[in-house]
Amino acid sequence: MQLDLIHISIERQLLTGSRAGRQLCQYPVSTAKNGAGELNGSGCTPRGRHRVRARIGEGQPLGAVFIGRRPTGEVWSPELAATHPQRDWILTRILWLCGEEPGINRGADRDSQRRYIYLHGTGDDQPMGIPLSHGCIRLRNPDILALFEMTPAGCAVIIE
């Protein structure tokens, strides 16, 4: 069954997916270490109404590494992470968000799409429930895989 709404609570570090008001899934997440905010370059997680602009990574293996929304052919492992300690790991699948509120999370200096705000997988060594991202919403790899399968392009996303 496909979701029609994804709700992300920054305070609770929790993602809830629903269809017609019925909860279908719930996953712990990690939002931005810098807190909530919409400005370009802030490193914050943007609030408000969004939509899933694009679904990226279908068919890639669990732990597939993405740079610039393209798979590198690598699969995350602790050894690979140790070799590249500076990387912000974007893994498995990407749900790219587009803001729906002009002046809040769309347009000018506060555009979620141009900030490349995603829901994406992260390394197994990264904790959930603790804000540590650079603005995106991180999930465990099995969780983003399951969420991706339920989420169509255009799905509504509310971040608060």
Rank of each mutant, 00 (worst) to 15 (best):
R140S: 07
G41A: 07
L132C: 09
I90S: 07
G68T: 01
R22Q: 15
L91D: 01
G99V: 09
A108D: 12
G121Y: 01
T72Y: 08
P28I: 12
Y118K: 04
A20G: 13
V75D: 05
Q60N: 03
A108I: 06
V75P: 00
R19L: 14
R47D: 00
R55H: 00
L132Y: 01
A82F: 11
R140Q: 10
G107C: 09
G48V: 10
R49A: 09
R53S: 08
W89V: 10
W76Y: 14
E101W: 09
L132V: 14
T45Q: 01
F66E: 04
L14R: 15
R22F: 08
N141S: 14
R47W: 11
C44R: 08
Q13F: 05
A108T: 06
S77W: 09
E79H: 10
T16E: 13
P131L: 10
L119W: 02
H120E: 05
V75T: 13
L139T: 05
F148D: 04
P102D: 07
S30W: 09
S9P: 12
G73S: 04
L39G: 12
V52W: 03
L15G: 05
H50E: 05
S77H: 10
N141I: 10
D88H: 04
N40W: 12
I130V: 15
T92D: 00
N40M: 14
G135Y: 03
Q23A: 10
V157R: 01
S18I: 10
V52N: 05
Y27Q: 00
P142I: 04
R110H: 15
R115M: 09
R53T: 00
W96R: 07
Q126G: 00
A108R: 12
P61Y: 01
V157M: 08
T83R: 15
Q23S: 11
N34Q: 15
G135M: 05
T122P: 03
G37K: 06
R70N: 06
G21I: 15
R110K: 10
P127Y: 11
R70I: 11
E79G: 12
T83L: 15
V65P: 03
G103V: 09
M128T: 07
L39K: 14
P127G: 08
N141A: 12
T83N: 09
